[in-house]
Amino acid sequence: MGAVDATRTDVLWLDWNESPLGPPPAAVRRVAAAARRLHEYPRHLLDEVTELAAARHGVAPSQVLLTSGVDEALDIAMTLVERGWAVEPGFDFHARVVAWGKPFLPIRLGPDWQPAGRDDIRATDAVFIAQPGNPTGNLIERDWIDEYRASAGIYFQDETYQEFCSAPSILGEELGPDVLVYRSFAKAWGLAGIRVGCLVGEAGLIARLEPLRRFMPIDAVSLSAAAGVLAEPDFVDALTAHVLRERPRLAALLRASGLFLDVRDTETNFVIARVERGRAAALVAALERLGVRVKPCDFFGLDDWIRVGVGTAEDHARLGEVLARLRPEFAPRAEAAAGPA
């Protein structure tokens, strides 16, 4: 599949879960102002964003460690453990565990997309969970989470999609000395173009991790954008409300298209749909030729599924027109529609 020029304005980008409402205006204003201070190290901004993030998440600043995205957060966590576990199919936690030269062990999802039990997780292991999941978009049952929080040396919960889901964050609870929660500014905050997130944990654990963070790991522009949206969070509420309103409409559109064997509404800012076996790549390529980008889920280990980000009502109308054009070629055969998932 050939690459699409990212500067093209006629492409409908529904593949990377970017904000359909554009960037937060407050973040844009702060970034513009930051351009006049690019000659300075962002010392003051690290403290400002830490304090704002702590206030947003209802914790003390001593419980927050800013990181340059989830990869740095995972790298820091891996320094504390000998092995890493994660759900598969799922987000690619595997890559960071292996990058550290440490064993990775998968926790398989069952047919209901809930993780299987494991009785060989050690106190020197980390368990990495995305809640809600990616690309499945569903929630892991709370009993399972409680069990593995208790058995792992480090329990790491990635809550990147928290604002879009129906379950409360575990940040409202006593976390304990071996729990880390990652919160992203990319999705509900409309800042996918910057690399800022934060780890939240007990103050003692964060104090152990802080020396492991790289010197000034987040640039002044990214910190300024995060400060802007944290100081004026109305945009987060508006974007969250938009996704919750448009997500079921997108799922209904995909079901009505006649191209998919199954469509799952999710707890995230995307919807996933299953195509006839072995045809996901061809459908993704056909959509791209018609100016619509969606993401195949085989990268995450979920074959025959595609992920479609929630857009605007106008985006969905255009998507519907393109899907209608592709229906003669990609509508599942009768025997596929009647077969097992």
Rank of each mutant, 00 (worst) to 15 (best):
P217G: 11
V236T: 01
D237S: 06
L261K: 06
L199V: 00
R255Y: 08
L199D: 08
E210L: 06
F215M: 03
P233L: 05
I194Y: 11
Y182K: 06
F260Y: 02
G258Q: 03
R245Y: 12
R264I: 02
A256V: 01
L199E: 05
R208L: 00
L239I: 10
V196D: 10
L250C: 08
G204I: 04
L205I: 10
L244K: 15
H242T: 09
L223C: 11
L223N: 07
K187P: 00
G201H: 07
L253M: 04
I194F: 04
A241M: 03
G228P: 00
R214K: 13
F235H: 11
A241R: 14
P168I: 15
V196T: 12
V181T: 00
L191A: 09
L199Y: 10
L205G: 07
G228L: 06
V221R: 15
R208S: 00
V179D: 02
V196W: 14
G176M: 09
G197I: 05
R183E: 08
R264H: 02
L259V: 08
A231C: 15
F260D: 02
V243S: 13
A252H: 14
R183M: 06
A256R: 01
G190V: 04
L199Q: 03
A192W: 02
L171Y: 12
D265R: 00
I218R: 05
I218C: 03
G201N: 10
E246T: 10
E173K: 10
A241D: 10
G204Q: 14
V221I: 15
F260G: 07
I170H: 12
K187L: 08
P211T: 11
E174S: 15
D178E: 06
A188S: 08
G197W: 12
L171D: 12
C198L: 04
S257N: 03
G193K: 04
L205E: 07
A225D: 03
R255V: 14
C198S: 05
S222T: 03
A256G: 11
V236C: 00
R183Y: 07
P248N: 05
G204P: 05
P217N: 12
A252W: 09
L244W: 05
S224N: 12
L253T: 10
G190I: 00
L205D: 03
L259E: 07
R264T: 05
S257V: 07
H242F: 04
R208W: 01
L261T: 08
A188L: 02
R214N: 12
A207M: 09
S222D: 02
E232I: 14
G204V: 13
L171R: 15
A241K: 14
F235S: 10
P177Q: 03
V263F: 09
I218A: 03
P248L: 01
L244A: 11
E210A: 13
L180C: 11
S169R: 02
S184W: 15
V243D: 10
A188W: 12
I170V: 14
V196Y: 14
V221S: 15
D237K: 11
A186S: 01
G176I: 11
L244V: 13
A251V: 05
V196M: 15
K187S: 02
L261I: 12
I206D: 01
L254G: 02
